[in-house]
């Protein structure tokens, strides 16, 4: 694998081909906030918190760093007024769904997001897909998946599989950025049907 050189926040960063911008930043110790990223899982690009600015001067574009492959000579900015503003709004939208999630509240503090900006619609799920993808990609059990779509989209356990596999695993619970409440609740519901 050949090495490429890019610039992140003014810092020269070495990366291997095939690495995403997020991975390159992480390797260089530059922090980019994420909710749906997990090193064992395929990039998902679901939470959009890891957006960064590419290029310099007038011609900048915003990309999702967890699914954008690092390129030679790329100039990346991980914090700017524009990025912070977008991240703030995303966090505020998530807080409408999971108002008491520690991870979100911490991000809210960092980005000055208003917890009460949007009317609460607490579903405790921000559709990061960590539990769903972990179950499918790492455990290969497919016990939990998404059902429905749009505003009604939610996670759901398949009762027959969950009854056999989940009690001794529960590895998806701690992955949840909204404190596992959602997964635990949905699992109980699936098993009590």
């Amino acid at each position: 694998m050949s090495e490429i050189l890019l610039e992140i926040d003014g810092q020269k960063v070495k990366a291997k081909t095939g690495m995403t911008v997020l991975e390159a930043a992480k390797a260089a110790g530059i922090r980019i906030p994420t909710l749906c990223y997990h090193e064992k899982l395929e990039p998902y690009g679901g939470c959009r918190l890891c957006i960064v600015e590419l290029g310099a001067g007038e011609r900048k574009k915003i990309v999702v760093s967890c699914v954008y492959l690092a390129e030679e000579g790329l100039v990346v900015t991980t914090r700017s007024e524009k990025i912070d503003r977008i991240r703030r709004t995303i966090i505020e939208l998530y807080l409408a769904h999971a108002p008491d999630a520690f991870e979100l509240l911490e991000l809210a503090k960092e980005y000055g997001a208003d917890r009460d900006r949007f009317a609460k619609e607490a579903s405790f799920c921000v559709h990061c897909g960590l539990c769903v993808r972990y179950c499918a990609e790492v455990k290969k059990k497919f016990a939990v998946g998404f059902v429905d779509r749009g505003t009604r989209k939610e996670i759901s356990f398949v009762p027959e599989i969950a009854a056999e596999e989940c009690w001794d695993c529960k590895e998806c619970f701690p992955l949840c950025p909204t404190e596992a409440l959602q997964a635990a609740f949905v699992l109980m519901r699936a098993l009590s049907l």
Binding site: V132, C135, A136, F142, A143, V144, G145, F146, V147, D148, R149, S156, V158, E160, I161
Partner: peptide, 12 residues
Amino acid sequence: VPRTRILHIATF
């Protein structure tokens, strides 16, 4: 095909 994917599609 895993059951979760079938359910995802059938409900989508």
